[in-house]
Structure formats: C-alpha cells, structure tokens
Amino acid sequence: MYYIDPHIHMVSRTTDDYETLAKMGCVAISEPAFWAGFDRGSVDGFRDYFHQLTEVEPKRAAAYGIQHFTWLCINAKEAENVSLSRDVLKIIPEFLDCPNVLGIGEIGLNKNTPNEATIFQEHMQLAVEHDQQVLIHTPHLEDKYQGTRMILDMLADHTSMERTRILVDHVEEHTVRHVLDAGYWAGITLYPVSKCTPARAVDIIERAGKEGSRRLCVNSAGDWGPSKPTAVPDLILEMRRRGHSESFIRKIVFDNPRTFFRQSKHFDLLDPATRNEG
C-alpha cells in the first residue's frame, strides 16, 4: 500500500532508511525542523539546516522515488533562547518560497515555559503574515496534557487562520479529543519509548470513529533517538489484523495527510499509481 509519512526527521537517518521506506510503499514524507540533539549556537547554524531541509534532503529522497516536503521554525526546546529565536524567525521568510516548504513547524512547547509560549506566538504571527500552514509539536510525558491545553488556548487567539490548516501532533488518548473537538487536525506519533504504539494508535482511531478520523494522521517521527522509521507500515499491519478495510487504512495513511498538505501551495504530489507512465 502506498503511504505518506507526515512527520519524519530524515536528516537523522541513513540513505539505507530511504531505500527501506521506498520498499515499504512510502511515496512522500514531510520533515519538520526540530532539535538536533544539541542547542545550536548561532543563526547561521539554522540557515545551514534550512538549506539541508530544502536542498539536500529532497535530492536524497528523490533517488528512491520519495517526494520530500518540509516545515521551518526554531523548535520549542531551543525557543527558550528568545534572542536566538527572534534571529531565526527573521531568516525563515528567505526559505518560504522553496518548492518543498509546506509551512511553519514543528513549533510548540517543550517544558511549557513563558519563553516557549512567547516564541510560539511569534511563529504563529509569522505563519499568519505569510499565509502558511502550521505543524505543532506537543510536549511529551507528564508535560503533554498541560502543554496541549496551553497550545489550544494560544491557537484560539489566531482567529484569522482556518483551524483546518493547523495540525497538532503527538496526540495521545488524553489529548486527541481536545484537538479534534476544537477543529484542528491531529497527528499520532508511533514511537517505541515515549509516545504511542501501533496498537494504541489503532485504538485511538477506532474510538474516534469514521467521523473523528477524518482529521487524523499517523507518523513515525523517525529521528536520531530510539525510533522506527517504518512504524507506519506497522500500523497498516495492525489495522489489517483487526479487519479494517483497505480503503479505510488508505484513508488514514495516504488520503488524510494528502488532504491536509494540499492546503499548501507547494504540495504537488505525483500520483504514485501513474507517476512513471508516459
């Protein structure tokens, strides 16, 4: 089955992983800007990173028939440094016209601090000013519930942006309903340690029902930590084992992310069934 991984950090993965993803049916990925595992010391570090996301990774992905899309920001962890964050915010517009940029992300909260909230709001303002979609990271573990509720409070300030152009990621059992009921898209992240297993993700999808799962996506968030870039195929297998129809599985892993991404002017997905014909 063809699928899209809407959140995976390929700068942290090997070329072998691109090959494996292609063999598993992955036809497109979107890669939000994130924390590199260390705090970068200058705005030039981010400029280089944005070049990597907009120039280098699309070529690596294309070598395996995968379309690469990306989102730009300074992540929530480094947003604690307000001065550096504002310098990074100033350079983001330089990259917004790159052909694989879908919007601003993954912005959000990490430890739910006032500085993080300030920079989140400034990213939102940037997105509004440049008519960009937004992809949002919610905190992990004990900070998730509080942070998700704070993010929803802040999003409510931005009435000029349609809620269907915003995806709130890493939802779990105690946060998914808040996000969907408020009218946003929700992302479930499959991750072996701190997030959700494929079985729990399918539980969330089943409990959301056909209507609720219209705005649900599933991703691997494969990165430099313990993670599994082929987690979405694991979810496909789990759904099949539970007897879900192929059309419903395809809706979750292909149609839904495509519907969300299509709201960006740069999302031009080739039809995987016919892309090499004629």
């Binding site: 739910n112 573990l141 004990e142 900070d143 998730k144 519930y145 509080q146 509720r149 704070m150 409070d153 779990e172 059992e173 105690h174 729990r200 539980d203």
Partner: peptide
C-alpha cells in the same frame, strides 16, 4: 488508558 495518562500528567490551569 486516559485515566492513567492523566494520572501521570501535570495539572492544566486555564488561567496559566
């Protein structure tokens, strides 16, 4: 599962 999640969560204050 949601009850366990909330047990391990920091409290949300609407007036944060």
């Amino acid at each position: 599962v949601a009850q366990v999640q909330l047990l391990f969560s920091r409290e949300y204050d609407p007036n944060w």
